[in-house]
Amino acid sequence: MLRALRRSGRLIVTYATCSSTVNRTSSDMRAGTSVGVTDPAVRHLIVRLATGVSFDTPWQHASDRARLRSVMRTTQSSLLRALHLLDAFRPGVDELTLGDLARHTGVPKTTAHRMVADLVEWGALERTPTGLRLGMRLFELGHLVPAQRGLRDLALPYLEDLYETTHQTVNLAVRHGNEIVYVEKLVSRGRLVPHSRTGGRLPLHCTALGKAILAFSPPHVVDEVIAAGLRPITSKSITDAARLLSDLAAIRERRVAFDVEESRLGMFCAASPLVNAKRVPVGALSITGMDSMSTARRFAPAVLTAALSLSRRLDA
């Protein structure tokens, strides 16, 4: 939808998509570049609209509307490209140069330079002596995600008790698409678990946490995971659909899932789902970093007890 009006002597053009609404004032549009305009004809059109069109009646020319819709599409793609710049950062990659960002995302370097300047101003990126890193503004926003914050706050006492009881690394994770996202991790001093981190992701079918969630998820969720392809992380990862379905059936029986070197060779894990009163899995708890299956089985009752206790609190 395209709409324009004047407020207090200022022209405001609004163009809305299904996901966002963007307002531009006449001062923005006189320059044209604020909405990503490179077409001289469209730039001229915006300047003309910003200075001389009566907005009490609908626009007269279909070509005007078509050109402004083109501007809208350009603006939306610019936003997505800026987000792709942020997505170039990966675990273990804390800093990137402008050239790295352009190369990883395919965004032209001149365009990336302009977007980076905006992202730095907003706080999504920070400059360092040698490049760029993610900014504190993203950290602050991440901790405002309602589901993550509420579940983490509720689960933290149980995680701490589990850690004190076992002295092993303990995790809280939720499902996002076909992956788990680690919401909290309390790390054991005895053995590092380097392949997971708070905010990190791993495939559902390759982790005890993910399988615990999958086992209590609707059938269509399991079907989607299988249809996407069971790509392995290690040589022990489950890649056969029948084997995964059999494992999930066993997990539903005992309410505990095991990672038998499926996410990292040499490491074993036990996890249990967090299921609310409607039988919907909202996440899972795990104990990880053990070096044998016998140790994972020994700690399974502890993680099961913690998960059952926390599950009862979900609807309290």
Score class of each variant (00 low, 15 high):
V187H: 09
E262Y: 14
V222H: 03
E160Q: 14
L245S: 05
D223S: 14
A41G: 11
P194Y: 12
F258Y: 15
D223V: 08
D100H: 05
P203S: 05
R24E: 08
G150S: 11
L96C: 15
N171C: 12
L5Q: 11
G32R: 03
I180F: 13
S78P: 00
V221W: 00
G142Y: 07
R191P: 00
S286D: 03
S27K: 12
R201P: 00
S34G: 03
T130N: 13
L79V: 13
L5R: 14
D39I: 06
L162K: 06
K211E: 01
K211Y: 04
R30W: 03
L230M: 00
W122P: 02
P218A: 11
N178W: 00
R313I: 04
G52T: 07
Y163T: 09
L172P: 01
V187G: 01
G266C: 05
F258Q: 12
K211R: 15
T25Q: 05
T295V: 04
R152W: 07
S20I: 07
L80V: 13
A242T: 15
R69K: 08
D100P: 02
C269D: 01
G266N: 03
K185L: 06
P218D: 03
V53C: 06
M267F: 14
R252N: 10
R7N: 03
I180R: 11
